[in-house]
């Protein structure tokens, strides 16, 4: 049997590349290659048609570029087609918001999202959410191949938007520290089918390798496959990532929510 193949596309890094989220694509590509998957990592800039890929990552960015990215992806149509055929998508911050039904533009008017997640984002009225975020993956969250749940998520959030998860999607996680979706229900992120959205930077997949492997397993499993046919990934030596996770969780455990930096940041302009 030939080696499995995988294409990972980082969507519009020229517009949505402000927060180091391009690292998610690198983490996915390396973790696939280390398991002898033949992987192609594509930097899919906004000046050309979006290529077909098995796995897309959409990163954070400023308000103006976020609107341009949403318009470009809607006109291009490839991302929605790919999702309908089983492609996997990870959206972060501005990328998460534009996967939803609507998000605020730089003048706080609602702008159409791609509608790939039943999530609606509006401008928050309170302080901007800036800081470390820890969230426990919800019971209704995605399951790892074999049926296990994901461990807690850790990352850095930096957003002014408030996201409400509609009935067509489910919250990804429950906030333990930080703000997350910010709508008062204590949730963070959303997921539906093979599409996941989150506010976590870091990048999120460098700090949460189980989530990276879940996305890889989905991308390597044909849609509709029986549970016994789901791709199983060989374990990797993740001691450095685990040490980083432990250190970040410990750092947040010793700090209070909000605090000085959240107040300073609340005076700064919105980014996503």
């Amino acid at each position: 049997m030939s080696a499995p193949r995988l294409t990972v596309a980082v969507v519009y890094p020229d517009l949505l590349g402000t927060y180091g989220d391009g690292g998610n694509g690198l983490v996915l590509a390396r973790r696939a290659a280390w398991r002898h998957v033949e992987v192609e990592l594509v930097s899919a800039t906004s000046d050309r048609p979006l290529p077909r890929a098995d796995l897309y990552t959409v990163g954070g960015g400023e308000d103006g570029p976020q609107v341009r990215a949403a318009i470009g992806l809607a006109e291009d149509g490839t991302l929605a087609d790919a999702v309908a055929e089983g492609a996997v998508v990870l959206g972060v911050c501005a990328g998460y918001q534009l996967l939803g039904r609507a998000f605020p533009d730089s003048a706080d008017r609602p702008h159409d999202g791609l509608g790939l997640l039943d999530v609606t984002t509006r401008k928050g009225t309170g302080r901007r959410a800036v800081g470390e975020l820890v969230a426990a993956v919800a019971d209704a969250g995605p399951r790892l191949p074999g049926g296990g749940g994901l461990p807690r998520l850790t990352g850095f959030e930096n957003h002014g938007g408030v996201s409400v998860v509609g009935p067509g999607a489910r919250p990804l996680a429950r906030v333990e520290r930080g703000v997350g979706n910010g709508g008062g229900d204590g949730t963070e992120g959303a997921w539906s089918g093979r599409v996941i959205g989150t506010y976590l930077h870091g990048p999120v997949l460098a700090r949460n390798t189980a989530l990276a492997d879940l996305l890889l397993a989905w991308a390597l499993t044909p849609p509709g496959a029986a549970p016994e046919d789901e791709a199983r990934l060989a374990p990797l030596d993740d001691h450095e990532e685990l040490a980083l996770r432990a250190e970040r969780l410990e750092a947040v455990g010793g700090a209070r929510d909000g605090g000085r930096w959240a107040r300073v940041a609340a005076r700064l302009p919105r980014r996503c």
């Binding site: 460098a206 450095e240 980083l244």
Partner: peptide, 30 residues
């Protein structure tokens, strides 16, 4: 926020012995 480390082309240090340190050495290591 240390996410910017992923915008830095650390690949260019290939071929040199590298030691990561500082408060956020684990982020650099990853």
């Amino acid at each position: 926020d240390t996410s910017w480390l992923w915008d830095v082309p650390f690949e260019r240090l290939a071929g040199r012995p590298v030691v990561a340190t500082g408060d956020r050495r684990l982020d650099v290591g990853v």
